[in-house]
Design a binder for these strands. Structure first.
Lengths: 117, 117
DNA sequence: ACAATAATTCAATAATTGTTGTAGAGTTGA
DNA sequence: TCAACTCTACAACAATTATTGAATTATTGT
């Protein structure tokens, strides 16, 4: 993961609308939601939601698949794992035992992400 | 943790300068760095660095303590834990076993944060 | 083919954020 | 007290981001 990709993901979550959308999709889990459902749940204008969904998907934080005339969105856990790994790379140069714990945590989140797709 | 605080933290990391600073402080670990050292390491103008450090500290991602005429900055792990918890609250409503794994991960990062202060 | 539905793209406007230079507040050591 | 040093506060300019409405693309069912 490079710096530009990490910034795109932080920018994506640095907006009230997008943070609400992402957390909603997190709560919804593997089933995901179609755009209209998200708009109804958060009371957003379709145009505005579309703008923010595109931002989230371009950042890699959510995935989209077309279902007929609907677009189904899902939170994408592996991309969050990548961000956390990027943040904590070479962490605690003077205290390597802490880094071992981070590695363990990453492995756990990674295993979970595998189940979600 | 509320939405506004979470947004402040994502905004804080959604800038190349601040992301570099945060990762540098992460690598440096508990010892932290004074502003001048950070400026030298990243080749930043003092005024500009000060602006970004304030943003990071107001967001709670770094801590500052005064040491004589120096200001020492350190990455603050508990605030990162809070953000992750906020993101994954009520995660995977339809698959509770995944949430159990997230709880485990949070506990681990929490224990680590305790050592760092 | 047609009308209805779902979602996006585009263009215009409003609002926010980043960078730079100058000045100033606090600390140190003689 | 004075000069040197570290860092921050303020103001001005440049650049980016968010929201809205109208129009467009694509799909469904009759």
């Amino acid at each position: 993961m490079n710096q530009a990709a990490a910034i795109a993901r932080f920018e994506a979550l640095a907006s009230a609308v997008r943070l609400d959308v992402y957390r909603l999709l997190m709560r919804e889990g593997p089933g995901g939601m179609v755009a209209g459902e998200i708009a109804a749940a958060l009371e957003l204008a379709p145009t505005n939601l579309s703008f923010h969904l595109k931002c989230l998907s371009r950042a890699g934080l959510v995935t989209v698949v077309q279902e007929g005339r609907y677009q189904r969105y899902r939170a994408h856990l592996p991309s969050m794992l990548e961000v956390l790994t990027y943040l904590t790379e070479e962490c605690c140069g003077g205290a390597p035992e802490l880094c071992a714990e981070l590695a363990t945590f990453s492995a756990r989140l990674g295993a979970q992400a595998g189940k979600r797709g």
